[in-house]
Design a protein around this nucleic acid. Structure first.
Length: 220
DNA sequence: GACCAGGCACATC
DNA sequence: GATGTGCATGGT
């Protein structure tokens, strides 16, 4: 792919859709929990689960870490896969307790992103997309999140092969975009925005705004 | 009733 | 290494 084509696409998406203000969440901890709950799940369902956790006053590290499995499963039920996600959340809480505890996130400042990513990927139920969502949106690290929409859109337009690996797609973004956490945040959200509007798994998106003329450059 | 949604682990070949 | 399958709810 041409080096600056990706950048142009992202800028065009921004001019078409505007800023997305991601990730929806009041605290980094809520964002991290949401990243696990949203696995293969509609965000509206996740919101219900998060609201139930909040109502139960469990959306805080110490409380969630000590929450009995059955109660947690009952509360996150609207998010689907509730038994699976209960185990994943509690596995994540073990990492969170060991690494962060109830202290300030500032304490993580000196830990390299590479190290944190490796640790997260070792947690049961956390794969590359979830790890990168936690790193980017929860911890403010400069990693691009590659999700199903991003891969689908790029592959539909012949910009990548359908079976391109997660890490290879991520590399394209890391190499093709200015190295900016803010841009990575905004551009990933924009790919999801575009994907939600027109790029479903089955129908081919022949009205994709990516094919519209590029607008003027936009400062993000 | 069918399809879809901001994945991942595990079994099997 | 590649492919298939289970996990589950709620909205359209």
């Amino acid at each position: 792919m041409q080096r600056n084509l990706l950048n142009e696409i992202c800028r065009h998406l921004h001019s078409a859709f505007g800023p997305q203000h991601w990730w929806p969440g009041e605290t980094p901890f809520e964002i991290m929990v949401g990243a696990i709950l949203t696995q293969n799940t509609n965000w509206a369902n996740v919101e219900q689960a998060i609201a139930r956790l909040k109502a139960a006053r469990l959306l805080r590290p110490r409380k969630l870490a000590g929450c009995p499995e059955r109660l947690l499963a009952r509360l996150i039920r609207p998010a689907g896969y509730f038994n699976v996600k209960t185990r994943r959340l509690l596995a994540f809480m073990q990492w969170h307790t060991n690494r962060i505890g109830t202290g300030p996130l500032q304490a993580l400042r000196k830990v390299p992103t590479r190290t944190l990513r490796k640790e997260l990927l070792a947690v049961h139920g956390i794969g590359p997309e979830t790890a990168d969502s936690i790193l980017l949106y929860g911890l403010g690290r400069r990693v691009f999140v590659v999700d199903a929409y991003t891969r689908r859109i790029l592959s539909r337009h012949g910009l990548i092969a359908p079976n391109t690996s997660y890490d290879d797609v991520q590399q394209l973004f890391h190499q093709g975009l200015p190295k900016s956490t803010r841009l990575y945040n905004e551009y990933h959200a924009l790919f999801v925005r575009l994907g939600k509007s027109i790029c479903r798994p089955k129908p081919i998106c022949d009205r994709c705004p990516l094919f519209a003329p590029l607008g003027p450059p936009v400062t993000v």
